[in-house]
Design a protein around this nucleic acid. Structure first.
Lengths: 198, 198
DNA sequence: GTCTATAGTTCGATAGAC
DNA sequence: GTCTATCGAACTATAGAC
């Protein structure tokens, strides 16, 4: 009895993951509005109805997807902050992580966040929650800049603005690579150059 | 007779402009798929049917809108290239133009191009035409970089890649400001710093 | 837990009057 | 040139069988 409950939970969790990954891919490529539930279900190889067994609606699933991504990013920034090494090392690590690893999924996550933050099909509360989480990660990055400035490693300027420049640059380059016209291997130095006294 | 024909043409041209401007605004905010013809027509204060008197379809209008934007950008880059002053002055002028002027429309145009270049709802030919035009403007920027490198004004590196970095940075910052979370006045120096020796 | 069938709704596009 | 009314396709979401 307890065992079969556990098994059900495992199946549920696995399916949830599968559907989420499929949705991530499709939402990133097509955007929220252009994404049909059918594309998600066929990518995940499940029936149409099963989608609604796991998620209340298209919108609910989108929101939870974004929240998971933003939470993950907050954790990553935290990890960078807690790393040993100079603030510069920490920022380098963060940059590396952003542009390496499973690049495709990283790009997809970026694209989703970009769309979500400017979206107009969400309630004000939902959007505020996104923005709040995004700011939390920005503040982490700003703290790294601030520490580095005190050690004379980074250029002067409002740390929060530097964080904005940093994120904008990262996102611009991610967006470029997402296009596939002429992908470039982003060198961490090129990005860091912008912010370091060397 | 000739006179009334002229007047008809004027009305037509003006309406065309009005509808295009309304569409630019809505497409930029919502993206292609989420944009309803009704939103365009009510923004332009015309009836639903009249839209189809001026444009063959939603897609045709979108494509022609993008082409107009890209052609305009090509012209702007050309103008920068032909300007007197050092290559650095030329790049500064281009950067200024991008981030000043009627900022809102500039942002809208940027957003549209960003979406168009990664869109999947267009035929391969349509997309190739966009990419081709985008590359044309990139090549102009790359030429500015190349000239500047010979004069020792800019950092080393493949001029085409520098153009990519430049455009990515610009677009990342535009995207940031489009969000309205914490808009920053982009300083031309901050952008230029990335590429200049000094 | 999973599937198929379908109800209900939205939206692009057209027809026809003025 | 412009408007209103309407069609028909496509899509989200639900119901009910297995």
């Amino acid at each position: 009895m307890a065992k079969s409950e556990e098994q059900f939970k495992m199946i549920r969790d696995q399916r949830y993951e599968e559907i989420s990954n499929a949705a991530l891919k499709v939402f990133a490529r097509k955007g929220y509005a252009a994404t049909k539930i059918n594309e998600i279900t066929s990518t995940a190889n499940i029936s149409h109805g099963l989608f609604y067994h796991y998620f209340e609606s298209k919108k609910h699933m989108y929101v939870s997807l974004i929240l998971n991504i933003l939470n993950l990013f907050i954790e990553t920034v935290k990890e960078a902050e807690n790393r040993k090494g100079t603030p510069r090392d920490q920022l380098e690590w963060l940059t590396d992580i952003t542009f390496s690893g499973s690049l495709e999924q990283a790009i997809d996550r970026h694209l989703l966040v970009i769309e979500a933050l400017k979206s107009e099909f969400l309630s004000e509360e939902e959007k505020q929650e996104f923005i709040q989480k995004y700011k939390t990660s920005m503040e982490g990055i700003a703290r790294i800049f601030e520490k580095g400035q005190k050690e004379g490693l980074f250029i002067k300027g409002d740390p929060m603005e530097l964080a904005i420049y940093y994120l904008s640059y990262s996102q611009g380059l991610t967006l470029w690579n997402a296009r596939g016209i002429h992908p470039i291997k982003v060198s961490t130095e090129t990005v860091m150059r912008q912010f370091c006294n060397d």
